[in-house]
Simulated scan of single mutants.
Amino acid sequence: MSTTFLGTGIAIVTPFNADKSIDYDALKKIVDFNIENGVNYIVISGTTGESVTVSAEEKKEITKFIIKTTNNRVPLVLGIGGNDTTQVINEIKTTDFTGLSGILSVAPYYSKPTQEGFYQHFKAVSEICPVDIILYNVPGRTAKNMEVDTTIRLAKDFKNIVAVKEAAGEMSQYYQLLKKKPADFAVISGDDDLALGVTLAGGSGVISVIGQAMTKDFCSMIQLGLQGNAKEAFKLHYNLMEITDLIFSENNPSGIKAVLEILDLCKAEVRLPLVEATLGLKTKINTFLKNY
């Protein structure tokens, strides 16, 4: 199995100033904080990065900045996906992949394709993409589940499709993927609350949201899981359960940005249609962090 995407990856936020411009000072702080505390790789411009409200030009600038700041300390993955296959292919063709190890490509959303539609979409992406591809199945956002057999078919047919970030929230689906996958294909948890269980069952770790804030303990938990040390790993899991639930209780990334603001890593600013976490949620998060 490839070790490039093994352990804890984070779906990094895009920090904003009060005027909603990108806060590059905060972005540097978050990158450095995560690398120093054990993160294995970083995913740029995912859902948590508010990719749908970041312009194409901003995305390029953010990517360049993170590549420069990271300075080859950890692998980087760029989110490139959508429900217009031609547009996705055009973005891949016009992207400079210098400094990037792969892309995270979400299953087409809104259009609700058939399983054959999913397959043909990612076949077209695979044939043009010069770097490794992590598929991203998140039916809670896309409105359609990419089924296990479709993922396995893609894994077997295309060498540059090396992993799936699975976020259906169903352990049974994880187990089926782990049972049927090729030996060199990685199953990565996209559900923070299920990440340890998936890792212990044979998964390759997680692409996490909470991992970019509770970084040291979350990364330690996943490493213990990879080592098969369930007893020690679950101690950390139980300690982190409350904050993991809290950050998703309203919306993502408003919850994680509230945590990062309290940790003095960035402001809680988000772009519409998202709004900041409520005062009630911020109070609960602050109480947790004080007692942690």
Rank of each mutant, 00 (worst) to 15 (best):
Q87Y: 14
K179M: 05
M171Y: 09
K20P: 01
G211D: 09
L104N: 07
V39S: 04
K181G: 02
C129L: 03
A155V: 03
T3W: 02
R271G: 08
L154A: 11
D264I: 00
Y238Q: 06
L274P: 01
A268E: 14
Y41L: 07
R73T: 07
N37P: 06
N160V: 08
V13L: 01
I12K: 02
R141G: 09
G205S: 02
K93D: 13
K28N: 08
M1F: 14
L100H: 08
F65L: 05
N229T: 06
V106G: 06
F122Q: 11
L246W: 13
S126L: 08
G79F: 10
F185T: 04
M1Y: 11
E232P: 03
L289S: 09
T70N: 15
K156M: 05
M214V: 15
F33P: 06
L100I: 11
I210Q: 00
A268H: 10
V43N: 02
I92P: 04
D149F: 13
T95F: 13
E58H: 11
V13E: 00
I247F: 07
K231Y: 09
D132S: 10
T4Q: 12
A18S: 14
G7N: 08
K112C: 13
A258S: 15
V52Y: 15
Y109Q: 10
V270Y: 06
I89G: 02
L263Y: 15
M146R: 02
T86G: 03
G190Q: 09
E147V: 15
K179G: 00
V13G: 00
E57L: 10
M146K: 04
P273M: 07
K64S: 15
K60W: 00
V31F: 01
T14I: 01
F118V: 09
E127D: 14
V31S: 01
L200P: 09
Q115E: 07
P108I: 06
K68Y: 07
N37V: 10
V74P: 05
A258E: 03
I243T: 10
I207E: 03
